[in-house]
Every structure is written in C-alpha cells, then in structure tokens.
Simulated scan of single mutants.
Amino acid sequence: MSLLVNFHISITGKLLMMRYRSYLITFLSICIVFGAWEIAGRIPVSYAFPTFTETIAAFWALLIKGTLFVAYFETLKPLVVGVLISAFVGIGIGLAIGLSRMSDWLLSPIFVVMQTAPLAALIPLLIMIYGIGLTSKVAVVLIMAMPVIVLNTGSAVSNTPASMVEMARSFQGSKRDIIFKIILPAASPIIFAGLRLGVSAGFIGAVLAELKITPTGVGDIITFSRSIADYPSMYAAIMSIILLAVIFLQVLERMEILLFKGRGRGHASEE
C-alpha cells in the first residue's frame, strides 16, 4: 500500500514539475522578447521605436483615460460579427465540403481564391459596393477569417477515419449521430485549429479595415499617434491588439477542452 502511495506522490510531483517547467519556459521567453525590445529601444534602433517601458507607460495611460475601451467598442463590432458569421457559416460549409464531393468541387475553389486574393486590392471594391460603414468592415473580416475555417473543417471532415463511420453505420447510427458523435469529435482538433487561425486572421482584417476604410477604433489610435509622432501610444495600441488576440485564442482552447471533455476526441487522421 505504501508503495502505491509513494508511486502516486512521485507521479503527481513529476506532473507538477512539468507544468511549472512549461510556465517557467514561457515566462523566460516573454522576458527575453521584452528585454530585447527594451535594449533595441535604448540603442536606439530607430527614433520611431520606443522602449518597452515607454510603451507600457503609454498603454496604462490609454487604459486610465478610457481611450482603449472606447476604441475597442468600435473595433470589436466588425470583429465579433465577422468572426461569429465565419465560425458558424464556415463550419457548416466545411461540413458540406467534407461530406459531399459535389460540394467540394463547387465551393472549395471559391474559398481558395478568397484565401489567396490580395485583400488590400479588394478593399476599394468593397468600399464601392458597401460604403465605408460597418458592412464593409465585416466583409473584410469575413474574407480574412472564413476561408481558413472552411478549408480546415472540410479537410478534417473528409479525413475522418472510414472505419469509425462504418462502425457507427453497423450499429444503425443515423446520419445525425454519425456527424455529431463520430465526425465532429474526431475532426475537432483541426476544426478548432482552423477557428484559432480564423480568429487571428479576423483581428488582422478588423485592424486593416480600420486603417484602410475609415480610421475608427484602435486603427484611429494607431493612425493618429503616428501622425503626431507619439510612437509609444502607437506601439501600445498594437500591443493591445496582440494581447486581446491571445486572450481570444486561449478562450477558444478552453472551449475546445470543455466541449469535448470525455467524448473520446481524437485526430481526424488517426487510424
């Protein structure tokens, strides 16, 4: 009995050490990046490149004044709408592409073209069609986010192990059961990887829309700060975008764990 207890304590201790080691490595990598940033700003690499401490000071100033909150109220509108539409519609289209060869032939080329098209060249066309309001900004987010989600979902669904599908059919599983209990759990890692990439692309699209269509939200802070040579505030706004994107991605990762916890989630390519 004592041997089992000691073995359990040993395994638990090793797991905790591995977890803390990963946290320590992450912390050290962050310190290296920010330390290099501080050194590069003090050399200086460029007069337009502030130090990390100056950027943090500007970031807190924007927070205290409430400027960032007001800016993100505008930026998050097209981002949230675009990402939600991309997620729900994109996963639905990806399912159709993965389950039907005809849908694959009809729809896949459209999203491949969307993914490879130069967005900066399409923005003037979107402005001509939808104007300079919310609709055109949502369209930019959709063009950036949806192709990644659709193509990843389609690839994941089409690569679901045929043996698992055949087993479900042999047990008289309905098509709905096969999709929701076999295909989606098996394809979930690649689908959620596509969602994370789509969210990242959506952030890029939202900020690009604000810079190229109308300077509102965080894009307005970046444009205005650059125009008056307030580079710490400009970099603080850019850093806030990165921080928010990381938070969004962590939330998606937690959602994936909660949704498929205990459901035998596996890789779509596993045999």
Rank of each mutant, 00 (worst) to 15 (best):
K14S: 04
V45P: 00
I190H: 12
I93Q: 07
F203T: 01
L107F: 15
I56S: 05
P44C: 07
T51A: 08
W105S: 15
K137C: 01
V81I: 15
V150G: 09
A206H: 00
P118C: 03
P147A: 07
G262R: 12
S163C: 08
I9Q: 14
I93F: 13
F69T: 11
I43W: 07
G13R: 14
V140W: 11
Q250A: 12
Y47I: 05
R101I: 05
L106R: 11
T216F: 11
R19L: 10
V207Q: 04
K175N: 14
L243K: 00
T75H: 14
F111D: 04
L28A: 14
P50Q: 03
I123E: 03
I179Q: 08
I93K: 06
A71D: 04
E166L: 14
E54Q: 13
Y231N: 03
A229Y: 07
L184Q: 05
R176H: 05
T55A: 03
A193E: 09
A145P: 01
R226A: 14
G98I: 11
G194E: 02
G13P: 03
T214V: 15
L258Y: 11
D177S: 14
S170A: 13
L252F: 14
M17I: 14
G264V: 05
A209W: 13
L68S: 05
R42M: 13
T223G: 02
W37H: 04
V33H: 06
E253M: 07
Q172L: 06
Y47D: 03
